[in-house]
Computed example of a mutant assay.
Amino acid sequence: MAANYLNSDPFKPLNHLESYLLRQSIFLSRQELKVLYWATEGKNNPEIAAQLGTATCTVKTHKNNLIAKLGVAGKAGFQKFLLETAQNIWLT
């Protein structure tokens, strides 16, 4: 999946995800984009926080902002968005 991208260009998966979102007129901050990327990779909040060098509560704040920006219905809607995004980006 996306982890294969990391071996060649560390920014390629983020750029690919950002391009996908921009085509849908979804505009995210770089940190929100990183949180979304790691969430699509199946990472939980503490793992994402460790990856980004930030606090778990900051990751939760980013996820809440993502839920609002993506227009999804709560955590269940966010999980559905993650699955659909992963299928559309990493499996194509």
Score class of each variant (00 low, 15 high):
1 M>G: 08
1 M>K: 00
3 A>F: 09
4 N>H: 05
5 Y>R: 02
6 L>M: 00
6 L>A: 00
6 L>E: 00
7 N>R: 00
8 S>A: 11
9 D>T: 01
9 D>M: 02
9 D>V: 01
11 F>Y: 14
12 K>T: 10
12 K>V: 12
13 P>S: 10
14 L>W: 03
15 N>C: 00
18 E>I: 13
18 E>Q: 14
19 S>P: 01
20 Y>E: 09
20 Y>M: 05
21 L>S: 04
21 L>D: 02
21 L>T: 03
22 L>S: 12
23 R>A: 15
23 R>M: 14
23 R>E: 15
24 Q>A: 09
25 S>H: 15
25 S>L: 14
26 I>L: 12
26 I>A: 02
26 I>K: 10
26 I>V: 14
27 F>Y: 11
29 S>V: 10
30 R>Y: 09
30 R>E: 12
32 E>L: 03
32 E>S: 03
32 E>C: 04
34 K>G: 02
34 K>L: 03
35 V>T: 13
35 V>L: 08
37 Y>G: 01
37 Y>D: 00
38 W>Y: 09
40 T>N: 12
40 T>M: 13
41 E>L: 13
43 K>R: 15
45 N>Y: 05
45 N>Q: 11
47 E>D: 04
48 I>D: 03
49 A>T: 02
51 Q>Y: 05
51 Q>L: 09
52 L>M: 14
54 T>P: 01
54 T>F: 07
55 A>D: 15
57 C>G: 15
57 C>F: 15
58 T>Y: 10
60 K>I: 14
61 T>G: 04
64 N>M: 07
64 N>D: 13
65 N>R: 04
65 N>Q: 06
66 L>S: 02
67 I>H: 02
67 I>N: 02
68 A>L: 10
69 K>A: 09
69 K>Q: 06
70 L>H: 11
70 L>M: 13
70 L>F: 07
71 G>L: 07
72 V>S: 05
72 V>K: 06
73 A>H: 08
73 A>K: 11
76 A>T: 08
76 A>Q: 08
78 F>L: 05
78 F>M: 05
81 F>S: 05
82 L>R: 04
83 L>A: 14
87 Q>D: 15
87 Q>I: 15
88 N>Y: 13
89 I>A: 02
90 W>R: 02
90 W>T: 12
92 T>R: 06
